[in-house]
Every structure is written in C-alpha cells, then in structure tokens.
Design a protein around this nucleic acid. Structure first.
Lengths: 345, 345
DNA sequence: CAGACTGCGGAATACGTTTTCCCGGCGCCT
DNA sequence: AGGCGCCGGGAAAACGTATTCCGCAGTCTG
C-alpha cells in the first residue's frame, strides 16, 4: 500500500479525471452543495478522492468562496496560565465548530497588538478574538478599534475578552464583583490592615479588581491606607518585587496582601518566605484567577475563581452565535477561601 | 481622515487602477520581486496602497506562489505549562521569521493527532511541528509518519519535538541524561529507598526519563525496588493519585519519589501534605522540567531544568535552517537541587 | 402527444495574486 | 547608421476551487 508519494498532492482536477466526471461534479460531490449529484457519480468521486488522498486546498477554497475556516486568537503571552487556559477553551470550541485556530502573541505591547490585528485582518479569518493586554489610554487604541470595526464591517466577527467598552461582542469577567466579594469575605474574617499589589492603572483588569476590592472594603467599614496600594508589574516578578520591598520594611504592620492576580500572589508568597516570613501565618495573601497551581502552593492560595476555559468557550460561542454583533456575556466569579488567609481572631 | 470603510477591502486591482499602472506592475512594486520597477511608479503604487489600506490576500498569494507563510504547531494541551512554554518559544521564532502560527490541540490522543496532521497538511503550511503525545506503539503511528513523509516529499518541513525515532528534523531533550544525573545527585545526597511515579510505558518521554533514572541509580550502586515503580497518568492528577495511595500505606519506607514530570511531582507533594506528611521532611520529592512554579511550591521542587522556550525556538530554527531535513538538535538539561530533597545524613 | 418542468452534468467564469511572455524604447557597440 | 542587449511595462496565463449558467434527457401535466 506504499505507492510512491506524488511530489505534488492531488487536486480536484485529478480527482475528477480519475472518477471520469467534470470538476464541477467532483466539487459538488465532495462538499455537499445545494445541488444534487447522482449517487453513483458521488460514490465514484469519493472513491477517487480516497484513492488519491485528495485534500482540498483551503486557500483555494477561501478564495473561491470568499471566506475561510479559521478563527484567530490574539493573546498577551501563551506561557501565562491565564492566557493559555483561555486559549485552551477557545481552541476546543473552535475545533468543535470545524474551525482552525491561528494564534498570535502580542507580548503585552499595544503596538504589537495593533500590528498583529492588521495582518490578521488581511488573512480574513471568520472571527478575531482579542484577549490582549487591555492597556487603555494608549494612543494605539483608537487605531485598534478602527481596524476591528473595518473588519467587522467587511463581515468578520470580533470578540473582545474582558474589554468591555468597545462596540464588539464581549465576554467579560466579573472582576469588580469578585474582588468586592473577596474583600467582604476577608474583612469578615477579621483582617483590617490591607495592602494591595496592583498593576499600572492603564491595565484595565487590574484597575477593575483593585477598585472592586476597595469598594468591598469600604462596604465592610474597613479603611484602606493608600500607602499600601503598591503598583508593580502584572507578572510573577512584579509580585515578588513588591513583596520583597514590603518585607524589607518588616511588613509595616500589614496583615494581608491582595494581589490582583494569582501569579503575582504566588510570587509574593515566595518573596515573603525568602525573607523569612511565613505566608498564612506572618502575613496572609490572596490572589485572583484561581489558576491551577493555587492549590499546590503552600499555604494553598485564597483566590477568586475565574473559569478561564469557560471564558474561551464563551468567546467562540459568542462569535458563532447569531445574536447582535455587540452582545456581551458576563462570566461570573466566586471567592475560594484557603489556608493562605486563615482569618484573624 | 475617516472615510467610510469600503464594505469589501481593496484588492490589488484597485491599487493598480488608483496608481494608474497595471496589476503586474503594482504587484512587482509591492513585493520587491526580481524585476525592477521605475521608482516613480513604485512610489505611486505604494501611495495608492496606503491610501486604500490595501492588504494582500494571503490565500490568493498562497495559491499564486504555491506556498504559504504559516507554521503549524500541534501540541497535546495548551494549558499544560510544558506545552505552552514550547509554544511560546515557537511562536516567538515564527514571528521573527514573518510566519503566522496556527495552533492545534491534539488532547493527548494519537487518533486526534493523526486527524489534525491530516487537515493541517491540507493547509500547506511551511512547517509542521509536532510536540505531541509521543505515544508509541499506537497503530496510528505508522499512519502519522506516512502522512508527514508525504508532506515532506511535497516540500514541507517537519520537525518533531522529542520524538527521536522518526526520519524528520528533531529537537530532542536529553531526558535520559538529565534523569541519570538527577539519580546520581540524589544517591549522592544519601537517598537509598526510591519510588518512581511514571506514565504508561507507551509515553516515550516518561519511559526515557524513567530508564535514565534507573540507570543512574544502578551507576550509583543503589537498587531500585520494582514495587515502587508506580504507573499512573502523565498529569497532575496522576501524581496526586499515586502519592495518595503511597501515603495510605504509610509511605512503605520510601524516602524519596521521583516523578517523571513537575506537574506530577507537584500533585504528589500536595497529596502527601493532604495526607499529613510534610514533603521535604517526611518524604523527598523530585520532578522533571523545572517549570516556573517549581520554585513557588513549598518546599521548592528539585527538578531537571529543561529550557522549554529554547525547545520551541530550536524547533523553528531547525525548520527554517537549510541543513538536511533530518537534522537533530539535542537540548541539554541540568539538575537543579532544591529544598524538596534536603539530603539525608 | 405536446409542452412545461425537473434533475443533473459540464463548460465557463470568478476569486486575487504571481509570474511568464511579449513588446517597445533606449543606449551602446561596431 | 544599424543591430543588439537591456530595461521596464502590460497582457495573459496559472494556481485550485466554487458556482453560475446552459443544455440535455427524462418525467409530469393537461
């Protein structure tokens, strides 16, 4: 069964010739068009296709029908569990819909993100989903929106994940609400002296979580000392640095730090430990996202569960759904208390 | 500057008309072909392209020149840090080379992997890299190899990551060597009673690491009791389960467990702790991969560092290089001792 | 039994590029 | 001055597929 592989793979033309029909009939037989073809011809074509190991040329199909079968996803960084979980859900849903996903990594730079969307648009995918850096105030932002609008006007489908304020389909995470609940839960557990590790204000996710948390504290009658709202990078390293500095000052009386993401929180815990403080005993730590490793660190990390896979799935569903192009889906979040915040008596 | 976006994006035809030249000239001006075009015409064309926001249609280009600008990567699971780190390196290198990466998730099923490669092949990417499940003995294996061979014969470039025994470009991780060194280091630290958590023998990575480790123990004069070579799933859950069972039997005198991957090791540490044993004190644990979170768990996990990003980069370099199609690059590994294996005195 | 209609096959065209081929003009050499 | 090579422009073919349009045979209707 090992015939010499033809250097050039078979085309529809070859299949048609092999089956003794015209190209048109072969095409119709292979991709169930509106038109019928006599069953005998159809099976002859299928047999020929199988024999020649024919694969349709997606580019040619794309050109002929004016649309592709791809879905594009742009993320900040695949290696970040936040994005990779979303990507996992997205690609699962894409696959179920028979779409191929092309992945682009923006590296957290809005400039790069813009470039990517530009070239992506040229490739005319069925949907473009942006789960990007969400830096607002950037001057590239208008350009990005313009690019996406043009794409949508040309029949494309765009979905933003957790970027609420653009006129596109959006799947949003209840960042503020989750942070609010977390704050109330922690205040209820007896904590009073809070620190927050946050990313620069331009990062929307961070800002929303931060504000929600602050509101939750206010609602619980706890005052937050602005000195302890520490701005750092939105990465593990950022969390580590912030914690290191706080530890250097002997914790300054802080009882608990809320880091706006789990990776930051985990970095912070390691920094505290490196400085000789025991997380969960000397200082409590809470994060956000509930990534997988939250339960594997010690003490297990209190967090706000964000069903990230679900976010990816929802993005694809939204894109494929027939609702208005600007539908919004809100993914809800839930507090998960663990040993990193044992509570104070 | 906000002209109404044309419903249909501009084609090369439009650009040519706008610039008052022929399509051929426009094409030549825009993609620096071998042929020269008078500078005045060239700049007129560029201006027209800019004005109309022209983007070449990649599918049309693909069809016309018979090749695409994409690189395909198939991984087992994007959400797994092992794969996502590789994907990160791969897409970085792809981007640098002006390639777009399409990502497919095989979900650790060889059957699915085969299907994916089939459809991927149809899309005629420049390169196909498979960082898949590496299950061998499966009957789909021959089919996979055949599919890839045909693709390569048709001018494609295939790279396998850590799948040494197929006639393709290969980037390989020194699994056996790293495990061997790790075994020697641990034996040198005084450990004698080892357990190994491994995946089914059909998973090559696991087998190589396991065999390397066993050889290292032999070389150190330590005998390994087969009863403690425990087969489980190649996931965090697998590690957790195996550790849970071992803990139920009171550890059976085991001093240290080597799990063939960090995610398994981390799951195991959590299981031990859940069962009341303190990892690093009651039982030592070592893993493999040195994923990011290895330093954030407590105690920090002893592991074998695999520069996974580098693996992805190397895969792309190999694909783009002009060496023989079956070149092999070996990525070396290095032991990293941490607190999870404090050593026995 | 004539005419209309249906069902299906095939030729041809379209999709947006790249590339080959041809052609005219210009400068250079003899 | 005439021939030759070179340069650059445009027409057209090619890439592989989907689809429109046309025509033919067979079937149904009146």
């Amino acid at each position: 069964m090992h015939d010499a592989a033809p250097a050039q793979s078979a085309t529809l033309h070859d299949v048609a010739r092999e089956a003794g029909v015209s190209i048109a009939t072969a095409s119709r037989a292979l991709n169930g068009s509106a038109r019928n073809v006599r069953t005998e011809n159809a099976s002859r074509v299928r047999a020929a296709a199988a024999k020649l190991a024919y694969r349709p040329h997606p580019s040619a199909q794309a050109i002929a029908r004016g649309s592709t079968r791809t879905a594009a996803l742009v993320v900040g960084d695949v290696a970040d569990p936040y994005f990779s979980a979303i990507a996992g859900g997205f690609s699962q849903a894409a696959e179920a819909a028979g779409l191929i996903v092309t992945l682009a990594v923006a590296g957290r730079s809005p400039q790069r993100e813009l470039e990517i969307v530009r070239t992506l648009r040229g490739r005319r995918p069925r949907v473009i989903a942006v789960a990007g850096s969400r830096v607002d105030g950037a001057d590239t932002r208008g350009a990005l929106a313009g690019e996406l609008e043009a794409y949508q006007a040309a029949g494309g489908r765009v979905v933003m994940v957790s970027q609420r304020d653009l006129p596109f389909g959006t799947v949003t995470v209840d960042n503020a609400g989750g942070a609010h609940q977390l704050a109330r839960a922690l205040a209820g557990a007896g904590y009073r002296r809070f620190a927050i590790f946050r990313a620069p204000a331009s990062v929307r996710t961070s800002r929303d979580r931060c504000e929600g948390f602050a509101a939750g504290l206010r609602a619980s009658g706890v005052t937050l000392d602005d000195r302890f709202v520490i701005e750092t990078e939105f990465t593990r390293g950022g969390g580590y640095e912030a914690a290191r500095k706080l530890a250097e000052r002997g914790l300054d009386g802080v009882e608990i730090v809320f880091a706006v993401s789990d990776v930051m929180a985990i970095g912070a815990m390691t920094a505290f430990r490196d400085a000789g403080f025991v997380p969960g005993r000397d200082i409590a730590v809470a994060g956000f996202d509930d990534i997988d490793s939250a339960i594997d660190v010690t003490p297990a990390l209190t967090s706000v569960a964000v069903p990230l896979r679900e976010v990816g799935l929802a993005a694809m569903r939204l894109a494929l759904g027939d609702g208005p192009a600007t539908d919004t889906v809100q993914i809800s979040t839930g507090v998960v208390l663990r040993e990193s915040t044992p509570g104070r008596r």
